[in-house]
Amino acid sequence: MLDSVLPNKHLTAEQQDVFNEILEFSRENLNRGSKGLFQLNGDAGTGKSVILTQLFLNIESSAKKDRTDNYFLVNHSELLKVYQDNAGSFAELRKNRFLRPTTFINRMNKEHKIADIVVIDEAHLLLSEADRYNNFEQHNQLEEIIKLARIVVIVYDERQVLKLKSYWSQRVIDNLVKKFKLQYKLATLRVQMRMQAPRSVIKWINDLTTNLQLDSIASKNSDYLSGFDSNYEFRIYNDAEKMYQQLRRDNDKYKKSRIVATADYPSTLDGKKHYVNEGKFHLPWDQYNYDRTTWAQKDTTINEIGSIYTVQGFDLNYVAVIVGPSIEYAGEGKIRINIDAYEDQEAFKKRHENDIDDTDTAKKLIILNSINVLMKRGIKGVYIYFHDANIYKYLEES
């Protein structure tokens, strides 16, 4: 099990206040017979899922007494495994209440039922257009779930939108609130709980992935640049193989340390191994995981490279991130994005809905979002390697 999503994990004061707010909102609107949407925002690692799991444990504990029919949804196969496994450790929870959104929508429509409370983790992964490959025939998963529930609670982070077919903005959510005349409330978590890092590290990552800005690094080593005097290990390597060997040592000592990469290297779900090559570094991409054990929890995956799809939502002790050819040095301490170098064609699969004003801008945002998510996986440290050597050279000289 992953401690970060256990339903009985201790809540901070900020998290407890938000938990109470959601619970009160849900109960009041259920009692009034009003349809409602509670939206919980927050950056990666602020503890949104912790609140959601405790909320669901609370409402399911009293479901028989209150006669409520409740569901927990997540559009992420690896995370769903964790939630279903965790449910087996709590008598109040039932595994069949943890579903993929499409399963829930199709089941409720077939049975002509309306749920009472539906909580949705990683709502930014919901489909925002039809996808027959995933058996979703309608146009927007959140809209369909709202139709099929009295109260919907969503965890949302616009910085974690990763595909055009699940492209979200606050404007889309606001329009749904108006369309269904929902009671609506918004709360935002601001305290970083995953990364035991100083604000300067978070700022460095945010400046890179929001402002395309390369902030200076404090100290230089023969193998890497490091900075921000603290116990948190923040390093930028000029050699991917040396970075990986350090990560292996960390994994031997602390466990749960993995190397990941941006989707700038070819990979196809054809049962064959596809490799990421950077100098002497040579390692295969993760394989499709058919096991109940998640990719991040399997000891053998220290010998693979994780993708955004296998590590999003998970905690690692140390994470090493390879930033591939789609990120280039633009001069004067800035980066630019080369959309054509991004290999994840699934992420850029053309939308049928004509509701994105600028597709190229949306694609660049997806690439930056993926980097932001990957760099914020590490509890104890993050190591970074840039394919474009000019980025390291600039940081070394700045």
Rank of each mutant, 00 (worst) to 15 (best):
M1H: 10
M1T: 08
D3E: 13
D3S: 13
L6R: 14
N8R: 14
H10Y: 10
Q15L: 00
E24L: 15
E24W: 15
E24K: 13
N29E: 06
N29G: 02
L37S: 00
G47Y: 07
L52D: 00
Q54S: 10
F56W: 06
S62Y: 08
A63D: 13
Y71A: 03
L79A: 02
Q84C: 02
N86K: 07
G88T: 09
G88Y: 05
G88C: 00
A91N: 08
R94C: 11
K95C: 08
P101C: 02
P101A: 02
R107I: 07
I114Q: 12
I117T: 08
Q141L: 03
L142H: 00
K147R: 14
I151G: 06
R159K: 15
V161W: 07
K163R: 14
S166E: 14
D174L: 09
N175V: 00
N175Y: 04
K178N: 10
L182N: 05
Y184L: 05
V191S: 05
R199E: 12
V201I: 15
W204K: 08
T209M: 03
S216L: 09
I217W: 08
N221Q: 12
F234D: 03
D239M: 09
M243A: 09
K255C: 02
A261D: 04
A261S: 15
T268V: 15
N277P: 00
G279D: 01
Q287W: 02
Y309Q: 15
G313T: 09
V321G: 07
G333H: 12
D340K: 12
Q345D: 12
K350S: 13
D358H: 14
T359R: 08
T359K: 03
K364V: 07
N369W: 06
N369G: 02
I371A: 11
V373N: 04
I379R: 15
I384D: 01
E396V: 08
